[in-house]
Simulated scan of single mutants.
Amino acid sequence: MIVQFTSELRKFTSTRTWWLMLLGMVLYSAGFTAFLSYAPFLTSRSPVDLTTPESAVIAYNIAPAIAYVFPLAVGVIVTTHEYRYRTISQTLLAEPHRPTVFAAKLLAGFCTAFVFGAASVGACVLVVVGVLSSQGQDTHLFSPVILTAIAGSVAVLTLWGLVGVGVGALIRNQTVAVVGLVVLTQFVEPMARTALAGVGPQWLTLVFPGIAGDVAAGGTAYNAMTGTAVASQGSGFLVLAVYALVFSVLGSLRFSRYEVA
Rank of each mutant, 00 (worst) to 15 (best):
C111G: 08
V182C: 11
V179R: 08
V115Q: 07
V128R: 09
V127M: 00
I150D: 00
G168E: 00
G117P: 15
E95P: 07
R98S: 02
C124Q: 14
L93P: 06
G109D: 06
V128W: 01
S120E: 03
G166L: 01
H97G: 00
T185P: 03
A113R: 09
L162Y: 00
Q90T: 14
F110H: 05
V165K: 07
S134D: 06
P144I: 02
V129W: 07
D138Q: 10
V129Q: 09
T148E: 04
V127K: 00
L132Y: 01
S133Y: 10
V167I: 15
T112E: 06
F102L: 10
L126V: 14
V176D: 07
V131T: 05
P144R: 03
L147S: 04
T185F: 12
I171D: 06
A104S: 15
V129F: 09
L106Y: 06
A149H: 13
P144K: 03
G180I: 00
G166Q: 01
T158H: 13
A151H: 08
T175G: 06
S143R: 07
F102C: 07
S120W: 13
G136E: 11
A119C: 15
T185A: 13
I88Y: 11
L141N: 02
R172M: 02
G152F: 02
V178I: 15
R84M: 11
A177M: 00
V163N: 10
T139P: 03
A123Q: 09
V156K: 08
E95D: 12
V179T: 14
A104K: 11
L107V: 13
L147V: 13
F110T: 10
F114S: 12
A104H: 14
G161W: 02
V125T: 13
S120A: 15
V183G: 05
F110P: 09
G152M: 02
F116R: 10
L170I: 14
D138S: 04
G161D: 01
G117H: 02
T148L: 13
V129T: 12
G117D: 00
F142W: 10
P99G: 11
L126P: 07
A113G: 10
C124V: 08
G180P: 04
L162P: 05
S143V: 11
L141A: 04
S134N: 04
R172H: 08
G109A: 09
Q90V: 09
A149F: 14
T87C: 08
I150R: 00
L157D: 09
V165N: 04
L107W: 01
V128F: 02
L170H: 06
V165H: 06
V163K: 08
